[in-house]
Design a protein around this nucleic acid. Structure first.
Lengths: 66, 66
DNA sequence: GTTGAATGTCAAGTAAACTTTACGTACAAT
DNA sequence: ATTGTACGTAAAGTTTACTTGACATTCAAC
């Protein structure tokens, strides 16, 4: 699923490793997420939104969903 | 994860079976969701938000997440 | 030129979301 | 009394999120 994780992360000057620790997931998960390779769980999305101080809707783009 | 799915569904006069079809998931998934038995995927959360015409944050409560 | 930090890939494994089927209960309508 | 609708449980299976570990690449710093 498309998202702005990479952009926001770099804006904040953080590395993949750093946010993987903050979010308590593996760095692989961050890489895959940034590449849009999968659909995170809602809890992970909430954690990311909190870390980035943005709403889920601002970060993730469900694209064509129907 | 806690949520208002049941409340909103009943407010809209829909059955579990009806929304499971709209959301393209099984009725079991709706039952488990309403019971807070798990964490949906972000896509499912987006679909629910769209069906209910509310934001994800209005429907789901991440509770204590840290 | 080599060291270290940051990013990436690949592959195998585990955990959990989600499905399917089968069955139980409650209740309203006939 | 039985039929249909709505809700629930349980158990086994499939799919996919997420982990772990090993290794490759780029680039800036020394």
């Amino acid at each position: 699923m498309k998202n702005l994780i990479r952009e926001i992360r770099m804006e904040m000057g953080l590395t993949q490793d750093e946010i993987s620790e903050s979010l308590e997931v593996s760095r692989q998960t961050i890489i895959s997420l940034e590449k849009g390779r999968y659909n995170p769980s809602l809890i992970l999305a909430f954690k990311i939104a909190k870390l980035f101080n943005r709403s889920i809707e601002e970060i993730f783009d469900p694209e064509e969903m129907e």
